[in-house]
């Protein structure tokens, strides 16, 4: 004797065994299955065939789980990108204000020191980092390009300082940490762009 409830419970167990989680997601799929069974039965199918039809329409569990995994992975990546954007935003903002304070508010006021050009260039990079952080936090893809460029400049600057024998051990360690974080940012944003492709119109129209 065909027992619809038992077969639906079996179907649900199969979905769960394939890795479809959490229970709320299974509830939603089960609701869909039941809606379809009901509709098929109204159109004259018997319970068994209606359930077979509904289950076939929902599809196999493995590809479905893979698709859910992809969706979850993408949202996890987006969350991480936001955190990364905030870290860059905060770091560059703090660095920008610190250098500004040193340039203008240190004892004796503003002076043209040998480091002035270096400081001005660094300020532009920090500002670009702030801009990139804001853009990325707001979800604009342009933020990834700005931040990757800034991170690359950080890697170069940090590498130069690590090999400068005149600098202390602590400062070198700090440069290694910042350079490593910048390399991670470049790698991670590259992965993020690859995982969330977006069709863009060509920059130039070839007519």
């Amino acid at each position: 004797m065909f027992d619809l409830e038992q077969r639906i419970a079996e179907w649900r167990r199969q979905m769960q065994a394939a890795g479809i989680q959490p229970p709320a997601r299974l509830d939603e799929l089960e609701g869909h299955l039941r809606d379809d069974v009901q509709l098929q039965m109204k159109s004259g199918m018997d319970q068994e065939r209606a359930l077979e039809h509904a289950a076939a329409m929902i599809g196999r569990a493995e590809p479905l789980r893979a698709e859910f995994d992809r969706a979850t992975h993408a949202s996890g990546l987006r969350m991480m990108v936001r955190v990364l954007a905030l870290l860059w935003l905060a770091g560059c903002l703090v660095s920008f204000t610190t250098v500004c304070r040193e340039m203008f508010l240190s004892s004796g006021g503003f002076r043209a020191t040998p480091f002035l050009l270096f400081n001005v260039i660094a300020q532009f990079i920090y500002l670009a980092g702030v801009l990139g952080g804001v853009l990325l936090f707001l979800g604009a893809r342009s933020g990834t390009y700005v931040l990757r460029t800034v991170a690359l400049l950080f890697v170069i600057a940090c590498a130069a300082q690590v090999f400068d024998s005149g600098l202390g051990f602590g400062w070198r360690m700090w440069c290694i940490a910042v350079g490593g974080f910048s390399l991670f940012t470049i790698y991670f944003l590259h992965k993020f762009l690859a995982a969330t492709p977006k069709l863009r119109p060509p920059r130039k129209a070839y007519v």
Binding site: R25, L29, H32, I58, L64, A71, A74, R78
Partner: peptide
């Protein structure tokens, strides 16, 4: 559509 595949799409749109 393969009916089940709608739900990952809905999930992704909700996350976005």
């Amino acid at each position: 559509w393969t009916d089940g595949m709608l739900y990952p799409v809905l999930h992704r749109m909700e996350q976005r």
